Amino acid sequence: MPDPNPAALDFLLTRRSRPAKTLNAPAPAREALMPILQAAARTPDHGKLEPWRMIVLERAALDRLAGAATDHAAKLGLEPEVAEKGRKQFADSPLCVAVIEVQRASPKIPEIEQTYSAGAVCLALLNAALASGWGANWLSGWVAHDRAFVEAHLGLGANERVAGYLHLGTESSVPPDRPRPDLDTITTWVSA
């Protein structure tokens, strides 16, 4: 007979990301952030490759990245609303953890499994932040996927990419729940 954890299951059944635009200071201090990072690092990792790392972006770094996003967007000729969305992701964030996928050469572990593990780190970090009482949101966008931007401003290597930017802070409003998938539509049962 399994040993259930009803509180954990209830949390997972009711969890809801908080829109990044509703997050304000204060953000978790280093001692409050460490257990959240620890929980994220417990993500399944086939082959113990640790195909990810985390970069904690504090206020001065976020301000630097907001300016860099504005400059880089101008060089790319991005539409003003797209450029502004990238800038605001850093400018408005109380604290951000960039989860970086690190592809490691392995004869046993396919690259796609390393990608999945990095995505799982993002979800684990998001859920750990929410479970700790913080508002949290997982974003990406052009500031995550533009190679020149992430290499120049986050120092990423050729074998690295941003799996997600996890924004953490104090929520200013509780969002309404949104419609959830219909399990009958997305689930197939196979018994033989």
Rank of each mutant, 00 (worst) to 15 (best):
P2N: 14
P2Y: 13
P4H: 09
N5G: 00
A7Y: 03
A8W: 05
D10G: 01
L13Q: 09
R18L: 09
K21N: 09
L23Q: 08
A25Y: 10
R30H: 13
R30T: 15
A32H: 07
L33Q: 06
A39M: 10
A41C: 14
T43I: 06
P44R: 08
K48S: 09
L49Q: 01
L49W: 03
E50S: 08
W52G: 07
W52L: 09
L57M: 08
L57Q: 01
R59S: 13
R59W: 05
R59G: 07
R59K: 14
A60K: 07
L62P: 02
L62Q: 11
L62I: 03
D63Y: 08
A68T: 06
H72E: 11
H72C: 02
A73K: 04
A74N: 13
A74Q: 15
L76P: 01
L76T: 01
G77R: 08
E79R: 14
E79G: 00
E79Y: 04
G86E: 08
V99R: 01
V99N: 02
I100W: 05
E101T: 02
Q103N: 05
R104D: 00
R104G: 00
P107H: 06
K108R: 09
P110F: 06
E111G: 03
E111R: 10
E113L: 03
Q114H: 08
Q114C: 04
Q114P: 01
S117F: 01
A118S: 06
A118L: 04
A120N: 06
C122A: 12
L125V: 12
A128Y: 05
A128Q: 05
A131D: 08
G133H: 03
W134A: 04
G135V: 10
W138G: 04
G141Q: 06
V143D: 00
H145A: 05
A148D: 15
F149P: 01
E151W: 07
E151M: 12
H153G: 02
G157E: 13
A158E: 15
A158K: 14
R161F: 01
V162H: 01
V162D: 02
G164V: 04
G164E: 01
Y165G: 00
L166G: 05
L168R: 05
T170E: 11
E171Q: 13
S172L: 12
S172I: 09
P176Q: 11
D177S: 14
P179F: 13
D182N: 15
L183F: 14
T185G: 13
T185E: 15
T187S: 11
W189F: 11
W189E: 14
V190Y: 06
